[in-house]
Simulated scan of single mutants.
Amino acid sequence: GQYDYILINDTVEKTVRRLGQIIHGNRYSRNSMRAFLESYIESELAPQSDLADEILSIGRD
């Protein structure tokens, strides 16, 4: 319940390959992309916080 993945270190090669697959899969997941975009929008539009709030609220409906 505390972990999203379990890696069994049977051989280094298999474990590294599995870890790479996990990283690659999560890099393009919807939640990861959403967090990245929210962070980017907030940092780029900080001086115009009303505009940032408006853009971020679009996907929350």
Rank of each mutant, 00 (worst) to 15 (best):
I8V: 11
Y28E: 11
N26E: 15
L56T: 01
S57K: 13
R18Y: 05
F36I: 10
Y28F: 14
N9S: 06
D53R: 14
S57W: 01
V12M: 06
I55C: 02
E13P: 02
M33I: 15
M33R: 15
F36R: 15
E42G: 04
G59M: 05
A35E: 11
I23K: 13
I22A: 07
L37R: 14
R60I: 00
A52T: 02
N26I: 05
E13F: 07
Y28R: 14
Y28N: 13
E54L: 08
N31V: 09
P47Y: 04
H24T: 12
G20Q: 13
E44S: 07
N31Q: 14
I55N: 02
N9I: 06
I22Y: 08
G20K: 14
Q2C: 00
A52L: 05
R34Q: 11
Q48E: 10
S43A: 10
N31S: 14
G59H: 02
Q21E: 15
R30E: 13
R60V: 03
H24D: 12
I55L: 15
K14A: 10
E54P: 00
Q21V: 06
L19M: 13
I58S: 01
R27D: 07
S32Q: 12
D53Q: 11
E38K: 14
Q48Y: 11
I22L: 09
Q48N: 10
V16M: 08
I23F: 09
R27V: 10
D53L: 06
E13L: 08
T11H: 05
T15A: 15
R18D: 12
Y40A: 09
Y3P: 00
R60D: 06
V12G: 00
A35F: 10
I8F: 08
E54H: 09
D10R: 11
L7I: 15
K14H: 09
S39V: 01
S32G: 09
A35S: 11
E13D: 12
L7S: 02
G59R: 07
S29D: 15
K14S: 10
G25L: 10
I55W: 03
E42M: 09
G25A: 14
L45T: 02
S29N: 14
E13W: 03
